[in-house]
């Protein structure tokens, strides 16, 4: 079983991530599923009436605006990094948290590595599916890279509003 980082701890993964071309055929009724955006677009109703938990995942060229009106349906929103150098979803996570007020889990999936976790966390990610060939316990340390930050993000106000002489 894959293990993920959630709220600063390594835990067992309970959600199933469906492929981008997944269909409704043979979907379990009770499993917790993270479905690709296309499936949600086409079969929102069928997905909503299932008993299991529902999440959605966006590829790096899919925009959060697409689901902004429907956030209440998702316990998890996973944002995919096809390569860790593709930074688009840092903006997506901030928009979900700061603009659309999403309070469920925002999970980083794909090419997710230790050295990006600190920035991801600041943008509002609270779960990280570390790339399968890496140790999530080692990656945990990435969350502690910095003790002070200058600018505002999803986590805090800018330092100039907090700074004490």
């Amino acid at each position: 079983m894959q293990r993920i980082i959630k709220n600063g701890q390594v835990i067992d993964e309970t959600w199933h991530l469906l492929d981008k071309d997944a269909t409704l055929d043979g979907l379990s009724n009770s499993d917790d599923l993270i479905v690709p955006l296309a499936l949600w677009r086409e079969h929102a109703h069928a997905l909503k009436v299932r008993d299991g938990g529902l999440g959605v995942w966006l590829d790096s060229d899919e925009e959060v605006e697409e689901i902004a009106e429907e956030l209440g349906n998702f316990k998890v929103i996973a944002l995919n990094f096809p390569s860790f150098t593709d930074g688009r979803h840092y903006s997506s996570a901030r928009l979900l948290r700061e603009r659309y007020g999403y309070q469920g889990e925002i999970r980083a999936i794909g090419d997710v590595l230790r050295d990006q976790l600190f920035f991801m966390q600041r943008c509002g990610f609270d779960a990280f599916a570390i790339r399968a060939d890496r140790d999530p316990h080692d990656a945990l340390q990435g969350l502690q890279d910095f003790s002070v930050c200058y600018q505002a993000a999803a986590d805090q106000a800018p330092l100039f509003r907090r700074r004490q002489a």
Binding site: Y90, Q116, F118, F119, M120, C149, Q151, A153
Partner: peptide, 13 residues
């Protein structure tokens, strides 16, 4: 400089 230093959203432009 301070705003841009380790800006978490813009490290992978």
């Amino acid at each position: 400089r301070q705003w841009s230093t380790f800006h978490p959203e813009f490290a992978f432009l």
